[in-house]
Design a protein around this nucleic acid. Structure first.
Lengths: 137, 137
DNA sequence: CTTGACCTTCCAGTTGCTGGAATCCCCATA
DNA sequence: TATGGGGATTCCAGCAACTGGAAGGTCAAG
């Protein structure tokens, strides 16, 4: 099958498949006489693996590691689990960060009238609040 | 004051200040005889505003809008509140997405021994599952 | 044979910086 | 006055992970 069909079946856009190939995440595809990339079911499965791992937030590099583990029949499942666990921790950190932003914004919003008047504690706080661990001078 | 001090006082790195100037987020700074950028307290305040808004997850473009509202003494506080509200919604969407990833990963992890054996449902699921969100099969 | 869908490569742009090179300015000390 | 060091300047490159678009080649149908 051509790249278009592989894209459709795997859920990875054709452009992205070429990109993955160009950076070495996946092996270069076979080519037809006319120079078209040709894929089979196994490669579609790999692409689906990649797409799923990406959708779980793994970086390209991590996906590369997961692919290597996947292909290594002698890998220890603990290695995979460790990666998953680290990824959960990373996601948790991101969630916590976003939660912090969210809470701050909500707090600012409660103090803003939100009407036609110009007074706006949100802007005042953005301007006045300390940015970072700034020293007094 | 020079850019270094402005950076320290605002919490925005000197390089980032130049970058913000180059993309037009902030106005070009005055220059000294020797060509150095010169800042005063008002500009540091602006930088602090930017840095705080960025830390709340607003994009550069949104920060530009917030700056415009900040400088517009006749703005309606409702406009600001609407931006904040939209930002909260955007953050909520991201949190939900991350939560989904997290839950899926956790689920996969519970089914993996995590020992020296190669059997690993995590990899199997990554390969076999449909690209879309994780139905039971 | 032509049309149009699909494929190819390559370059550029996205977001928000950050690192580094080469050069210049400023101030203080020997 | 030379010099040394710590700023500052510009510009170029690159990070992640694609995505869009141009210019052109291929293929199957009509």
């Amino acid at each position: 099958m051509n790249i278009g069909e592989a894209a459709e079946r795997s859920g990875v856009p054709a452009k992205t498949i070429r990109y993955y190939e160009s950076i070495g995440l996946i092996a270069p595809a076979e080519r037809s006489a006319g120079g078209y990339r040709v894929y089979d079911a196994r490669e579609v499965e790999t692409l689906r693996f990649v797409q799923r791992a990406r959708s779980l937030g793994f970086s390209i590099e991590q996906v590369g590691e997961l692919l290597a583990l996947w292909r290594d029949r002698s890998r220890a499942s603990a290695d995979v689990k460790a990666m998953a666990s680290a990824q959960v921790a990373a996601i948790d950190r991101k969630i916590a960060e976003l939660q912090g932003m969210r809470d701050t914004l909500e707090h600012l919003m409660t103090r803003c009238h939100g009407d036609a008047r110009p007074d706006c504690p949100i802007l005042e706080d953005l301007a006045g609040a300390e940015a970072a661990p700034a020293e007094e001078r």
